[in-house]
């Protein structure tokens, strides 16, 4: 069994401009943020990003790396909208394909099964069809019904973050919800898994039941160990969402000067520098609380 572990730098080398990348997680939950931050450190651009979006979308849009956004929604959960997402939408700065959440899942399922489409009722009669003029309906061959022929959302690359993985690419989630990470992996030509910790295969089942082994190495091309790699999104039970930092991110994103400062403070260095800056952010905050 091959050792697929790799560095963040090697991972970034596998992503090329113009690719379609799927990003796992959901809103501001278990997002492969370390992988996204690493993409920001490269020159990769013109990406088509396919996701149930959160700050992954915000960061990539703010850095001007996105040509097209394909999404079921973009939200920070505890904050309804990512301000960068709102800004690119209101400026008309990126091409978009917005789908009903269920349609989006149907598109991933089609891609994972190597089909060009799958039928669904979701979207019929709605303006999702207006906003995606390439979508058509299809008559049932068996009943007097028509359905939306949801296009497969095929991906060049999928990025997901999990709680544990082994070196060969068996990936485990320990939180309440797998989201759609396995579908993202199967819908992609190549999948890169970042993980809180790389463990030996025999240790996976000490952390959780066999049912928590979400993604098989069949579908994984690279494993990157990134402790706190979902920060500032949640990665239960290892850590919850960093609400204070997310609020800081959202507030900085509302204004050009404060965003410049945020970028310089948190994003211009490497991954270790990011986590050091976050630790400093919290230390300063606690200091301010005490002096109050």
């Amino acid at each position: 069994m091959g050792d697929k572990s790799m560095s963040l730098e090697d991972f970034a080398g596998a992503v090329e401009s113009g690719m379609t990348i799927g990003i796992g997680g959901w809103g501001s939950r278990r997002k492969p943020m370390a992988l996204v931050r690493q993409l920001l450190r490269t020159g990769v651009r013109d990406l088509t990003v396919v996701t149930f979006g959160g700050p992954d979308v915000g960061l990539l849009c703010a850095a001007g790396r996105v040509r097209k956004l394909v999404y079921g929604f973009v939200s920070l959960d505890s904050i309804a909208l990512d301000p960068h997402f709102r800004a690119v939408r209101e400026q008309g700065a990126v091409e978009t394909a917005e789908y009903d959440e269920g349609m989006f899942v149907t598109g991933l399922r089609a891609a994972a099964s190597r089909l060009s489409f799958l039928p669904t009722r979701a979207g019929l009669g709605s303006d999702v069809l207006t906003m995606n003029p390439d979508l058509v309906t299809i008559a049932s061959p068996y009943a007097d019904e028509e359905y939306v022929a949801m296009r497969a959302l095929r991906l060049d690359i999928a990025l997901v973050h999990v709680n544990r993985a082994d070196r060969t690419g068996n990936a485990q989630y320990l939180g309440p919800d797998p989201y759609f990470d396995d579908l993202f992996a199967m819908a992609a030509d190549r999948c890169y898994v970042s993980t809180e910790r790389i463990v030996e295969p025999q240790d996976l089942l000490t952390a959780g039941p066999a049912q928590s082994l979400l993604i098989s190495r069949l579908f994984v091309n690279g494993v990157i160990e990134t402790p706190r790699g979902a920060h500032f999104t949640s990665c239960d039970p290892d850590y919850g969402r960093d609400e204070a930092f997310q609020a800081h991110y959202a507030s900085a994103a509302r204004d050009t000067d404060s965003w410049r400062l945020f970028r310089k403070t948190f994003l211009d260095g490497d991954e270790q520098a990011y986590h050091e800056a976050v630790a400093e952010f919290h230390a300063n905050r606690e200091g301010q609380e005490k002096s109050r």
């Binding site: 973009v74 209101e90 917005e98 959440e101 009722r121 979207g123 303006d127």
Partner: peptide
């Protein structure tokens, strides 16, 4: 920009 269509089309279809 508001929250997006979310699951509304699928809800009303089903």
């Amino acid at each position: 920009q508001l929250i997006g269509v979310r699951g509304a089309p699928g809800n009303t279809a089903n």
